[in-house]
Design a protein around this nucleic acid. Sequence first.
DNA 1: TAATATTACGCTATCCGTAAAGATG
DNA 2: CATCTTTACGGATAGCGTAATATTA
Lengths: 102, 102
Amino acid sequence: MDVQLFHTFDAVATHGSVSKAAAALGYSQPAVTHQVQRLEHLLRARLFDRCAGGVTLTSAGERLLPLARTVLSVLGQMQADIEPDASPGKAGDSGGRRSPDR
Amino acid sequence: MDVQLFHTFDAVATHGSVSKAAAALGYSQPAVTHQVQRLEHLLRARLFDRCAGGVTLTSAGERLLPLARTVLSVLGQMQADIEPDASPGKAGDSGGRRSPDR
DNA sequence: TAATATTACGCTATCCGTAAAGATG
DNA sequence: CATCTTTACGGATAGCGTAATATTA
């Protein structure tokens, strides 16, 4: 289970639309659809009701949302707690090059 | 970033050994080594000190461990909160409109 | 020497993007 | 009819396992 699924789920829930979330995340619409389907399959629960003009959270989706955001929050805290040790001022590697942690 | 990396990190930290963790998780030793390296690269921090007879947590690893376990805990809670809706097998639907199984 | 961790290499599976189809107001 | 979501398909990337190498008590 990739954490990106939670990012995508959060974006879709926030925007109420797959296409808007895709644009915001920099993914194509089908990629977002697949990620949502993948998460739904992993949790064995339908998270959105598909409507023509967008999507709406199901009750399971509404229960999931705060938990997903908690996970994302802890992940951000993780980066903050680790980084001080990661760069102790030594001339280690890249001087400014930062690869996306995905 | 797959959450499996946190499971593996937790197992290696708990067992103090890559091979023990691999056996416990059902992975090969190289797979666990790669997962740890991947996590270290993603966080840009060394998490273990490699010794001949095993591995020991660095200070960064010690700081990461509780956060990783928090993530895993929330993930478990997630399953518990979702499952009641996934297969309720009940009749009295409380207002929720459920589209017919496609 | 024995046990442990790491690196090399090939294969499989997963995932994304483009293109086409279905559904709804 | 216009917009949005979903499915199909092809290519690229990532991850695991087996095998081989290095290091240390």
